[in-house]
Amino acid sequence: MIATQNLTFAYATDKQFAFPDFSCADRETMLILGKSGKGKTTFLHLMALLLKPTGGKIQINNQEISQLSVSSAADFRAKNVGIIYQKPHFVHALSVIDNLLLSNYLAGKNQAKDKAQHLAESLGFAEHLSKKTTQLSQGEQQRVSIARALMNNPSVILADEPTSSLDDDNCMKVIDLLKKQTQEIGASLVVVTHDQRLKDVVEKRIAL
């Protein structure tokens, strides 16, 4: 689960953000809708501990994490948070399977080839495992980045505009897969987006 209270952040004195409180239990999906410039990505980065809030609290699995030091934040993030970015980015020189195993390696966990294989099969890119990521289509790449976020069995999956660059078909496929996979590992799913298509498929949502 993940929850925030009174979260604030400032890039500069004239660019301050205050975010609404929310909480998202395990196996739940939370949609955070907002237009550009409303601080969607900032909110997500705060939850992912990529930014340090100027005020407020964040709990993941009932652990207060907003005051963690840089290195323990990195460790906590690697083990408990899976992040899916707007555009799928990978380590260019590595193959698809190696990009998946990389998240095990960097989190200091055992490299689970079976898990990677299993995820690839359920997300439908098993035949591309040994290819370079650039050889895959945009939709396939997005599915690989979902698999990568799931590799360490995190408690929270954070997705930043995971569907905005996809067509309607792929959009629905990706969100379905995301929900299904997070439920399978019992994680909370938080999707930050301006994509109005997702309004109808997610039950809980807040607006920025």
Binding site: A74, R77, A78, K79, V91, L102, L106, A107
Partner: peptide, 11 residues
């Protein structure tokens, strides 16, 4: 790529 690896837990 580097920022990505940093976010994935690399120091």
């Amino acid at each position: 790529e580097m920022a990505l690896m940093l976010s994935m837990g690399a120091s």
